[in-house]
């Protein structure tokens, strides 16, 4: 059943990607991107990566849509159509995609307990993190305790970026309501 849901979501994701390639109206593209990241987040959820799904929903569907639309307000809403079709990008994409599909064969089975990723430090975190940090959720304890400074740095970077974007977007309101406004 879950496999069927995964396959359906992936098919819808592919269709959305193809539709994104074919539109030239940028607002349409922004709305399709919002749908795309909702589908991505649903897929992450069915793959048990709930924390990634949280981030994808908040950043992909929420903030990026607002930022894209804010950019479109400044630069216009239509994409220029290409003068001629180019073969080289298509060939590069096909070759890269074929290499990636070839690489799938060497990936260990999804979620198997004897995968290398599950053997290295994961058992230590799973067994000792609750006693060491007092946080029942292992992901939370890794993010906020084991690599707490790292997370603090990330949050600082994101905060700075958000302040910068707000300053760029808020043209007009901060300058008061004078006659030369806008």
């Amino acid at each position: 059943m879950e496999t069927a849901i995964d396959v359906t979501l992936l098919a819808l994701l592919g269709l959305t990607g193809i539709a994104l390639l074919r539109v030239y109206n940028l607002v349409t593209a922004a709305m399709l991107l919002a749908i795309y990241s909702l589908l991505c987040a649903s897929l992450f959820t069915t793959l048990d990566a709930v924390d990634v799904a949280f981030t994808e929903a908040a950043v992909g569907a929420g903030v990026s849509t607002v930022l894209l639309l804010g950019t479109l307000a400044l630069v216009g809403r239509e994409e220029k159509r290409p003068l001629k079709r180019q073969a080289l990008p298509l060939i590069m994409v096909v070759v890269t995609g074929a290499a990636l599909v070839y690489g799938i064969a060497d990936i260990p089975p999804f979620g198997a307990p004897d995968n290398p990723a599950q053997q290295h430090v994961a058992p230590v975190y799973l067994q000792e993190s609750e006693a060491a940090t007092g946080i029942p959720n292992v992901v939370t304890s890794v993010l906020t305790s084991y690599r707490g400074y790292d997370t603090l740095g990330e949050v600082t970077v994101i905060f700075t970026a958000a302040v910068g974007v707000l300053l760029l977007l808020a043209t007009g309101r901060g300058r008061g309501r004078g006659p030369d406004d806008g």
């Binding site: 607002v27 922004a30 709305m31 849509t65 607002v66 639309l69 804010g70 479109l72 307000a73 400044l74 977007l169 808020a170 043209t171 007009g172 309101r173």
Partner: peptide, 12 residues
């Protein structure tokens, strides 16, 4: 956000 862009032409 999308509707604000369309009705007012800007988000600000």
């Amino acid at each position: 956000a999308a509707l604000k862009l369309f009705e007012f032409g800007t988000l600000a």
